Simulated scan of single mutants.
Amino acid sequence: MTAGFGIANLPYGIFSTDVTGPRTGVAVGDRVLDLAAVTGDPIHATGSLNAFMAQGPAAWAQLRRHLTSLLTGRAHRGVVERHLLPADAVTMHLPVEVGDYVDFYSSRHHAENLGKMFRPGSPPLTPNWTHLPIGYHGRAGTVRLSGTPVVRPKGQRKPPDAGPSLGPSLRLDIEAEVGFVVGVPTALGESVPVSAFEEHVFGVCLINDWSARDLQAWEYVPLGPFLGKSFLTSMSPWIVPLAALEAARVKPPARDEPLLPYLDDTRHPWGLDLTLEVRLNGELISSPPFAEMYWTPAQQLAHLTVNGAALRTGDLFASGTVSGPARDQRGSFIELSWGGASPLELKDGGTRSFLEDGDQVTITATAPAMDGTRLSFGEVSGRIEPAT
């Protein structure tokens, strides 16, 4: 059995074969279980997880119990084996129809690193950072499946000693992130307390929110990221259900400031002990620890909806870059190279400050599982192609 895709995990994705259109599958070892075939439920033949996710936690739990029974009971072995397909024989698709996309900025280490680079001599964190989860609305239409080519984006760039010009980004970067997928929607005007996180969020995936730092630096004042972020956001094909992550739940780091009541997660902590790994052309360059994140996904969702903003099935919100205190725990090249001032040294003798054409970046993650093993989130990857 492929490590990380055991019975304690059972992540969901959308796949197709030469003879079937897109449908729901569950990763089991090095196989994919065809849910439409094994359950007979047409909801798993829709080509998206959205319809199933909208059914809510009771349906999610019931199916998980059923799958566990099918996969562990000898009496079902014959039926199950007929519908287990080799993972290398299927084509994966974007698992959800993404509604809205929100990207947060929840790693204190990442925020402080960028603050030190961009605002030397001033406090690295903005005054609001320890009081609320900062985020921005991204472009849902460019959330694409892992493996989608990363075409170097073009936009306005402005060096310190010249005027702006239009051209390809020279400071193309990654952001190693964790994503959360909404299953159950809300009505306009309804807010989601931290205690209701599990009632609305279906599962967790990996995100690489590719960033053009030179475009971003010129455009982001006063309204924030735009072209520097909107050209592509990569999403992993497998969604790990929240039910698989109970053993990974931890308390978040201590907070500097008292939290307003709607963000108080003392009784409902949703820190997660996930270990990410970032590889450049196969070489491990960073291992960001998600347990270090200052703001949890439950707090992010509570803040996102406290003004009455409605959730839709398929909404995606991401953690922001995951970084730890050590250099080899930083989740972006702008941190790994300190803005280009200290390039990352590679094993082949080369260096990187930012991404070059032909570079392949792969992000993986694991977490403790309920059975004492470690579960996998699969991977999110992308290869840089020249600007067109």
Rank of each mutant, 00 (worst) to 15 (best):
M235T: 06
R383N: 07
W218P: 02
P57C: 01
T24V: 14
T362E: 14
S16I: 09
L188Y: 12
L375P: 03
T2I: 13
T351M: 09
K116P: 02
A196R: 05
K229L: 05
P57G: 03
R108W: 07
P325H: 06
P386G: 06
S234N: 00
V204L: 11
E335P: 07
L263G: 06
W295V: 04
N307C: 04
A37F: 04
A89F: 08
E190A: 13
S165E: 11
V19D: 14
G21C: 07
L71C: 08
L85A: 11
L94F: 04
S195M: 03
G183H: 04
V306Y: 10
G115R: 06
R82D: 09
N307A: 14
R77W: 10
S230W: 03
Q55S: 10
P237R: 08
D357I: 11
A140G: 11
S319E: 00
P289R: 09
N50R: 06
A341T: 15
P253T: 03
D173Y: 06
Q156K: 14
G331H: 05
G6T: 06
W270F: 12
G350S: 13
I43E: 10
T364P: 04
S376F: 08
Y12P: 00
R74P: 08
W338Q: 15
R139P: 05
Y220S: 13
A326R: 10
K116Y: 11
A217R: 10
M92G: 08
P153E: 01
E283F: 07
V19A: 14
E385C: 11
E246T: 14
R312V: 01
A369N: 05
S69N: 00
G78V: 05
G324N: 10
T39G: 09
Q156L: 15
P123M: 12
A8F: 05
E356V: 05
G6A: 12
L272G: 01
A27V: 14
L232A: 03
H66R: 14
T313F: 02
L232C: 01
A212C: 00
V32N: 02
W218F: 15
T366E: 08
N113F: 13
T2A: 15
Q216M: 10
T142H: 12
S16R: 10
W295G: 05
L170P: 02
G13F: 08
G6S: 10
T313L: 04
V32S: 00
A244Y: 02
E81M: 10
N281D: 15
N113R: 13
E246M: 08
L344Q: 09
I207D: 01
H76M: 09
Q299K: 13
V194R: 00
A302C: 04
L260R: 15
T186D: 02
S323A: 14
V240K: 00
L71M: 11
D214P: 07
V19Y: 13
K158Q: 15
V184E: 03
M1Y: 15
G228S: 07
L206P: 00
P225S: 12
D371S: 07
V79T: 15
G78T: 12
I363W: 02
G56A: 15
G115Y: 01
T17E: 05
S191R: 12
A59R: 11
A247R: 12
T362D: 09
D41S: 14
L71Y: 08
L276S: 07
H76A: 13
M53P: 00
T72Y: 09
G340F: 09
